[in-house]
Design a protein around this nucleic acid. Structure first.
Lengths: 212, 212, 212, 212
DNA sequence: ATGTAAGCGAGACGGTACGTCACGTCTTCAC
DNA sequence: GTGAAGACGTGACGTACCGTCTCGCTTACAT
């Protein structure tokens, strides 16, 4: 389904790559413009300047088209980043994420698909794999390096750490959509660093209480 | 449009309150089930067991119906809470918010409308008023009390503080939708308290730079 | 002040006659304008300048309203006519019928109800009583007098005779709706007279054959 | 609109003939069942098992659909009939007409449309063309042959003749809807023959009077 | 070069929803 | 209790798209 070229036994036609690309491009813009709920294959075909059949020949459904394209688009991302300090890693990560989420397509599509994921298990699974898992891995590596350096204790709560890192920035960019300044980013880095360190200083208790 | 009863000059008919309520109830369930994009007036009428006319007699459009109902539903919320300490206030706030966002309807509808707000200015404005403004006010009051008590400095960055408070919890509940434990909440309270305090320790600079 | 007030026992209200008449009048015009199929109580009420309740308090349904009113309107009809000759009787009858069917209301309503009768047994029965039966009786008396006078034989086929009398004129007035001249009426009288006489000359045979 | 196939420049879709026929069939049954006044496109589509679009793609309105279909249905009719005598021609004509009008669809639809024609000029014109004109022509030829044979004089009133031929049978079949026997038909043929002959014997006078 | 299988745009198909209108029923209010 | 006003559910209107499916035309490989 995703392979660009297929081997065929005899005098056969082949799916044209330019059309496939035009459809993907049109899909992203449609998705940003109307969201997954209102997305229609017809509109994608219209925007791409192709027939509806050209789409259905490549993907079996709207869901298939969206997920396959989104996964493909999200694939080429985020090289390793290691600045030597927790604060430096966070600062770099925030800049990269802020840049990525500042793209108009991303800032429209991602919240939309995340909201749709609450209704559609298939979307949920896919996004868990391409977004959450990625974040978990990146955040995990970041924390692990900080632990190795002695900046954080070994029993740091990874889930809470990822929420602390991803939450404020996502909220700011995708929900509040307030303009982002470098100053603000610095403040945020500082605060999250402190939060993680505090989290380390006050590790999870068995009974859920906080030692006074 | 929102008034339940209207004064009329003579022996007149009046919009029935039970029907208005049935429509609102049906709308919330439809909204949770299919989202704003796919929401259809016919489906709402069908679910409510009323005619389409009963809806159009009350609201002029799908947008009107949704916004007016959501505002009405969000109106009855959040009394003042003052526990005497920043940590106590945060803990109570998180519990209240976690309870509210745990409701299946809320956890489906809110992310959906927030995503739609990125496309629709009218939705955006309305949500800014009923959600963000409310959060700003609650967060502002919380911070102000902490400043009064001397727990935080006077120049604490309010925007960043609200993002730090709202972001992680929203991310956890609405995006990751991971089960929430009391222990996790405690950890989060601790971390956010530390972040705010650190934010105080590294206040916003006039030139936007962070003192090295 | 209206003169429609009547003595009632104790503060009791009574259906007002002027409203009843206004409804009947409006009904006839509506019936002519849109036909039975499209007739609506609402339009009748609007034209009569009364509320829908005023109609439903008097008649139980559209069918009831129409039939009761049509029967009432058709009731006051056709005195005895006896000119002394078959041809004279026919001529007078044709003139009376032509005059009646020339009324715009009648020429619109009657074909419409007759067509509707083919679908609606209740209408059919009622029209049979007020129209066909009346025609049968009038035609029957006309034929009987001619038989008494010796102008027609005793075994004249009454059904065929009525068809011969009613058919051409109804066709001309209600279906073809061609202007009617006195000359044409004379010709028709002459022809029908001849037809009846011929019918007499070639009476119905027991075996259904015509003597050659 | 009535053409089954359309020429189109490229790989084009074409209105399917089987669906066109199904719509026409459903229309005739709907028309017989509820009449023109109550006829709804939705009901026709439902009965035909097609979508509304399939109808609107072919005809622009209810009126267009009805007239075009009725004309098409009435088109394939009545070959020349020449038995050699006026009485034979009439007998044959009556049998053919009686057969046609005995069809349940025809006996419901024709009176309904004729009644509607009194209200709707477009229907009127169309029916004049396909029904009345046909009758005029058939009746005219029948009379002309009788004149040629010397059975009728040259100045026979054609209008009156057609009324005499069409009226009684239409009245009997469409209005009275009384069962029809061969005997009755014979009687009618005899009577109408006599009427026409009498009409010949008493031709139209210039002053409209009947010579005494 | 030719044959042919498959890609391609066009568009007809059965549906669904739109927002409006009119209907018969039912309720409320003024008199 | 009569009558007007009007809210109610129902259903049809004609339009706009939707996803599916069937067409001819076109392309590009295999012979």
């Amino acid at each position: 389904m995703t392979s660009e070229k297929r081997r065929v036994p005899a005098g056969a036609a082949v799916l044209r790559g330019d059309i496939t690309r035009a459809i993907r491009r049109a899909l992203m813009h449609e998705l940003a413009a109307v969201g997954y709920g209102r997305l229609s294959i017809e509109a994608v075909a219209r925007r791409a300047g192709v027939g509806k059949t050209a789409i259905y020949r490549r993907w079996s459904s709207k869901l298939d088209l969206v997920l396959e394209t989104v996964v493909a688009a999200a694939g080429n991302k985020l090289p390793a980043l290691d600045t030597g300090t927790l604060r430096g890693d966070l600062s770099l990560l925030f800049q990269v994420v802020a840049h990525a989420l500042s793209h108009p397509l991303a800032s429209q599509i991602i919240p939309d698909l995340l909201a749709e994921a609450a209704r559609n298990p298939t979307i949920d699974e896919t996004l868990q794999q391409v977004l959450r898992a990625q974040q978990q891995e990146i955040g995990g590596r970041l924390i692990a390096r900080a632990v190795d350096r002695g900046e954080l204790p070994a029993d740091t709560d990874l889930d809470a750490a990822v929420d602390l890192i991803a939450g404020p920035l996502y909220w700011r960019l995708a929900i509040a959509r307030t303009p982002l300044t470098d100053t603000y980013l610095d403040t945020l880095v500082e605060a999250v660093t402190a939060a993680l360190t505090a989290d380390a200083a006050v590790p999870r208790q068995r009974d859920g209480s906080v030692p006074g």
